[in-house]
Amino acid sequence: MDLKHDPMGETMTFLRNSVFALAAFAATPTLADLTLYSGRGETLVAPIIERFTAETGINVAVRYGGTAELTILLQEEGDRTPADLFWAQDVTALGMIKPMFAEMPSETLEKVESVYRDADGRWIGISGRSRLVIYSPERLEEADLPTTMAELTDERFRGRMALAPTNGSFVAHVAALREATSDEFALEWLQGLAANEPVMVSNNTAGYQAIADGEADLMLTNNYYLGRFLAADADFPVAQTTFEAGDLGNLMMVAGIGVMEGSANKEEAVAFVNFLLGQTAQQYFTGNVYEFPVTGEGIVPVQGRGLTFQEATEAAPEFDLNLIVDMEGTLELIRESGLI
């Protein structure tokens, strides 16, 4: 065999060299002071975490992942978790991990209204996101828009509504509906939706896309995606509207954070939470992430990228997010309705 042209040998040499080069490259972990499990996407939160490090000198190592995956991971890890903090997309995930969180100092808790944080002070809302209706302004007259969440089961929306029945925010919203009304009412509402033959989509983004594509005309969803779509394309053919003021359909939910009970760096962890609740971070969530501030004064809203937080807060119902707990029961109800 001509050794100079031995393909197997060349392949092996290439692989061996790459492994050594890569091992040297990848095995240089930064010395971190805090370990954060983030269910929030890197593009959205990395800039503000960098800002925190720049201001305080505290390094943060971040594990990015889906909120649900990280919630299950934390449950599996239990008190052996290396995490100091868990930043989640929604309150249901925070509720699941609540037993593993440490109580936060009252000066931190007091920055946020009590409905947007855990009643026992173990997690706290960082940014608000509103449930609302998105629709196609070309195919749906303003007079035909639903005025209450209950009205979504109306005959006139048959086959026109997009729905992501296993989306975390939707399940949490149904859990809230159970609390605000009753299991019977919630089930009836879900059955009404099912009878209306919704266009099933896999998540909120797919719902926005379905309306833009003309497959559906409206959807009950979260507000902040519209800002992102409009930022990428100013002519994106989807608009937002709220239900009548105080309707549960306009529920304000939060993405929030908790400090792990087992953390050896609680002081730095709380400093991180305080930073997120400060003016800089709150303005960032409002201006760049298209979410709503949960604290602070003089936060400048974004114009022309969907609902502003003044509009959202005026429309939002009085509802304590602490009541959203029973996910398994809610999922069971959604199953019973035949939606999943």
Binding site: A26, P29, T30, A32, T35, G41, E42, T43, L44, A61, V62, R63, Y64, G65, G66, E69, L70, L73, P82, N204, T205, Y208, Y225, R228, F229, A232
Partner: peptide
């Protein structure tokens, strides 16, 4: 998501961080 070293950012995770937020 579960087993990578914390702070590890391969292409698949960086990609997911964006698609999951609707930033195709």
């Amino acid at each position: 998501f579960l087993l990578a070293p914390t702070g590890f950012r391969p292409l698949s995770i960086t990609m997911f961080s964006r698609t999951s937020e609707g930033m195709l």
